[in-house]
């Protein structure tokens, strides 16, 4: 049976974003390709589609579990494209999705979040491969230090030290960028 609602993708109250990507990547790809009249690079497509899936992950806690996921994703895609190509005329016609669109954008907040996340991503670019992997396992997959150590055949102390070093580096970059954080 085709999965239709957000609820179908909740596993232990967490959104199964991998499965959503598997099921809707092609659909979003076509929307993006058909919506932009200008030449669009693969990098831009990648960024837009990524942002669409990240947006549903970010909003998932505030969405009704019964929300139709396909039209919601299309609505997000429209917003992401509009934000990216605000000054460019688009040839998309997905007004059918308007009624299903939940637009919670707060420009100032989003801008600040984007800046902070860009800084963090820049910090990640400087990590070694194993440091990056530990970071993703911990902060994306929510694995425990013990699990990560077992998976990567590292000592627990190495994982802890690596996470500490990564956090410290990110905080330093954020402070250099003018942001502070709770202590």
């Amino acid at each position: 049976m085709e999965k239709k609602n957000l609820n179908d993708y909740l596993v232990n109250k967490k959104l199964d974003i991998d499965q959503i990507i598997d099921d809707y990547y092609g659909y979003i790809y076509i929307i993006v390709k058909n919506s932009v009249s200008i030449a669009i690079t693969d990098e831009d497509i990648e960024e837009i589609i990524s942002d669409v899936f990240v947006a549903i992950w970010k909003n998932s806690k505030s969405l009704l579990p019964t929300i139709p996921i396909k039209s919601y994703l299309a609505g997000i895609a429209k917003n992401v494209i509009r934000n990216k190509y605000r000054k460019t005329e688009l040839n998309y016609s997905i007004s059918d999705y308007e009624n299903n669109l939940i637009d919670n954008f707060n420009i100032d907040k989003i801008t600040e979040e984007n800046e902070q996340e860009k800084i963090i991503q820049e910090a990640l670019r400087k990590l070694k491969a194993d440091e990056y992997e530990i970071f993703i396992l911990f902060y994306y997959e929510s694995r425990s230090v013990k699990e990560i150590a077992k998976m990567l055949n590292f000592s627990i102390s190495k994982v802890k030290t690596t996470l500490h070093r990564v956090r410290k580096q990110i905080k330093r970059n954020l402070e250099d960028g003018g942001y502070s954080y709770g202590k």
Partner: peptide
């Protein structure tokens, strides 16, 4: 990319910035 962005959002939240 999605994994990384979600991880980034999680650590940002951990830092209590937003």
């Amino acid at each position: 990319n999605v994994k990384e962005k979600i991880a980034v959002a999680n650590i940002r939240e951990e830092f209590n910035m937003n």
